[in-house]
């Protein structure tokens, strides 16, 4: 433990993510529905992990908690050794900015912006010059072979192109963590495979990649599978020792 009020996960090497007994439930009309029950997960730097489970297993809630968008009801969440479940919204936004990338099943590109502008979007909230942003965007566009459609709007693109753009947007600032919520859910199998390959390539550059999926087939393309069922972690296959 550190003495500055924040608990620090005390390992020789910090894990990217470390959770201890995470609990989360939703209340509606006096009925409490537990969603996550005592979830303990460790994900190390540079891992390529799938969190797999059927609908209702708590994947999306876990995605939101690991993505620093929601707070757990109980338990602790450490992000790079720092306990974040007690941080205010403002600090969590700061942590997200420049550190975590997100990919969604629905792509969620901004319809009014072009491909290049969508990719540039996260950079707007970082202290970067216009020139730096432009360079980073171009680099990303070339990396994902999007340069030829950089001026197109999302509605002019195929589903795969949209998801690749979303991936470019999520990685343009070289995040340390990339969270992907059912990234292949809206694509056919070819498109899905292509995205998984790209995610794997992103992982090879050092980014920790966590995909949330209900397809075991997709999950098997990663290095490690954590299975969720009714809010519990039931199996954790392929965890590397620390």
């Amino acid at each position: 433990m550190s003495g500055n009020g924040h608990k620090v996960y005390d390992f020789e090497h910090f894990h990217m993510i470390h959770t201890r007994n995470l609990v989360k439930g939703y209340r509606s009309h006096e009925v409490e529905t537990p969603v996550l029950i005592n979830v303990n997960i460790d994900i190390g730097d540079g891992e390529y992990v799938a969190i797999a489970g059927p609908s209702g297993s708590g994947k999306s809630t876990l995605f939101n908690i690991l993505g620093l968008l929601e707070q757990p009801d109980q338990g602790e969440l450490f992000f790079r050794g720092r306990e974040v479940s007690v941080l205010s919204d403002r600090y969590r936004i700061k942590l997200r900015r420049g550190h975590i990338g997100y990919v969604f099943r629905q792509f969620n590109l901004v319809d009014e912006l072009t491909v290049a502008e969508n990719v540039e979007l996260p950079l707007l909230y970082m202290s970067l010059s216009r020139k730096q942003r432009k360079e980073m965007v171009m680099e990303s566009l070339f990396r994902f072979k999007l340069d030829h459609i950089r001026k197109s709007f999302p509605r002019q693109l195929t589903g795969l192109q949209q998801q690749v753009t979303a991936l470019a947007r999520a990685t343009v600032f070289n995040p340390s963590l990339l969270l992907a919520d059912e990234p292949t859910g809206n694509l056919n199998s070819t498109g899905g495979n292509e995205i998984l390959e790209l995610l794997s390539a992103v992982n090879e550059t050092g980014t920790t990649v966590v995909i949330f999926t209900n397809s075991m087939q997709d999950a098997q393309k990663t290095q490690r599978i954590i299975q969720l069922f009714d809010g519990h972690v039931v199996t954790d296959m392929g965890q590397k020792g620390n």
């Binding site: 993505g67 936004i93 969620n108 590109l109 319809d111 979007l121």
Partner: peptide, 16 residues
Amino acid sequence: FKEVAVRKYFGAGRRF
């Protein structure tokens, strides 16, 4: 909603 949410995901604070 979507646009605002995406901006927020990628670090846009309330002030922005």
